[in-house]
Amino acid sequence: MEFTANTTYYQELQNQIRNCDDKEIIIKELYGQRYIGCATSDKNFKLYGTAGNGLGQYNNGSTIEVFGNCQEAVGDTMNSGDIIIHGNCGDACGYGMRGGRIFIEGDVGYRAGIHMKAYMDKFPVLIVGGKAGSFLGEYLAGGLIAILGNGAQGKMPCSYFCGTGMHGGKIILRCDEKPDGLPEQVLVSEMTEQDREELTPHIEDYCKYFGLNAKEILSNRFYVLTPNPNSGYNQLYTFE
């Protein structure tokens, strides 16, 4: 079913979508309507325009493809499903995400992938084609973040405080030199074969969506950030 959003209020639009049994949902002229795909599990969304805040929040299995840019809180607390963004994405993308994947063609804003966590068969993945803002992967507890650094000219593709408080998961950055200035909770190493194997299927899917060459991307130099097991919080406290 095809909807035209234009200036329809999000609650009205969401109501129309809820009342529609079709699996395929196309929305044209999206102007920031919030929560599209929120808490859905079996739909395929194709969205044209600017997706509003909370896109795919609590997503439980739907595929959401956006032809345009996204705003804030994309995939917030998402459980499964894919979100594909042909454009850039705003702040706080993938916050608290437990499963599913977010593929961004362009850049992502501040605080992407904060407190992502994995559980059993759930494994959250965030792949960003361009660059990321500060606080990427803060408190990361599980899952995988890869920043492919398109447009970064081989420099570290994210800004300050990457991986602060990280205690699980993996952040993979494409850059020519070992990233520095990272917080003490983070260990940096060059990508191993095992890491590459882990990354490959996601990059292949990413390339499928955006018409890119996976081999070419994977042939670049990558660095991997993992949590430093010796910098936990356990030594921080003394008890009454």
Partner: peptide
């Protein structure tokens, strides 16, 4: 607890000071 919190067994469960959204 791991099942209920939906995090792997034996991992720290950290709640950030603010909601980052």
């Amino acid at each position: 607890i791991s099942k209920t919190r939906m995090i792997p067994e034996g991992t720290d469960a950290i709640s950030p000071a603010p909601h980052h959204d």
